[in-house]
Simulated scan of single mutants.
Amino acid sequence: MQHMLNWNDLKYLLATVQAGSYNRAAEELGVNRTTIARRIAALEQQLDAPLLESGNGGYRLTEEGRLALDSARRFEQEAHQLESRLTRGGGELRGSLRVAAPLGLGPEFMAELAAFGNAYPAVRVELINTQDPVSSLNQRQADVGIAVTHDLPDYLSGRRVAVLQRAVYASERYLADHPATLPLGEHRWIGWGREMAHTEVARWMQHHLPAQTAVGLRVNSWHALREAVRQGLGVSHLWCFLAGDIGDLRAITPVTRALDIGLWLCHHGEVRNNRRVSAFVDTLAPLLQRRAGDSD
């Protein structure tokens, strides 16, 4: 038994290859880089073969590493297929369900999560707030995801339940001193911090606002952005389905169509028959559709 492969070590190899580096794999798995390196070294010692070798910009698989990776993928797929077969039967739904939701937006869906919890009280839901729910699914940190993205990668299945829209909002307090009719470049803006510079909204600001536009504050979360706009610190793009319910906020532009993006319920294809996953998608899809005011 001591010579049997350790699935957990194979999982670390799989995560490293999918993420592209030890550091990114450690981020995705919620461990430190040393743990990743140690577990892969243990696997190499057990197999008596090198699995990764240094290359330009990171690591690449050896021939033995490719064989080990194929085994890791088969183990992973078989484990999920087994769970799907075991959960197809009747009876009350039980067990755990890990749900990945976008960082900052996850708490906004608490009413829909509560509706699922009330319908299936024996299912233990773990909400994982993450920068990228798709990546969390890829790393098998979650069973199902609520993702904001244009399209899903080929390895995921899912349902686009709505198209989320954004417009530029301001508070009544701000508008008392800054007329809504001002050109956008003459407003004071709330922008995104450096780590969010890759987002579509940050790029929109960079490309559509004059270089001299005043940016009085930069934030890195949806809640901070919304609160800054509410407090009158400036204007910014907000999600229409959320900002529209806040009485002291007003849209000062039409919807910015270039920033439309899909709201998805997604999961790996091999777990589509998992009754917990199916029940979650079937429960939340109409609720999120109604919440976003979209029949897509």
Rank of each mutant, 00 (worst) to 15 (best):
L82P: 01
P121Q: 06
G57K: 12
L97N: 01
H3W: 08
T253F: 06
D9M: 08
T35Q: 08
P50A: 04
N273M: 12
E63D: 15
V123E: 00
R159W: 05
A258H: 10
W264P: 00
L93P: 00
Q46L: 13
D245Y: 11
R24G: 00
S236R: 02
R124A: 14
V281R: 00
R73G: 07
A37Q: 10
A162F: 06
N220D: 15
L10G: 02
L263G: 03
L284Q: 02
D248V: 02
A214H: 14
R88L: 07
M196K: 11
A111M: 03
R272A: 12
Q212S: 15
L182D: 05
Q212K: 11
N32A: 04
Q139T: 05
P210D: 09
R173T: 14
E186S: 15
A162C: 12
R230S: 06
A26T: 05
D70M: 13
R166L: 10
S278L: 06
L184R: 04
E227M: 12
R230E: 08
M110Y: 08
A258D: 14
S236E: 05
S135C: 05
A100G: 03
G193H: 06
A197V: 03
A180W: 03
P107F: 08
L209W: 02
R257V: 08
R38G: 06
A180S: 14
R188M: 05
D296V: 15
L263K: 02
R226Q: 13
Q77R: 15
A37H: 09
A197E: 14
N56M: 09
S21P: 08
V163A: 12
M110A: 15
L13Y: 04
A37C: 09
P107M: 15
A115M: 01
N274F: 01
D143C: 00
A42Y: 07
G117L: 01
A279C: 03
P210T: 04
A79Y: 12
E78W: 14
R60N: 10
N220H: 11
D151K: 10
E108F: 04
L249S: 02
E27R: 10
P210E: 03
A180M: 08
L61R: 09
C266A: 14
V163G: 07
H223G: 08
L52A: 06
D177W: 06
T283P: 02
I40H: 01
F241D: 07
R194N: 09
T35H: 05
R159L: 07
E28P: 00
E227L: 13
V134L: 14
L265D: 03
T283Q: 13
L152W: 08
L5I: 15
M1K: 13
E200S: 12
G244Y: 02
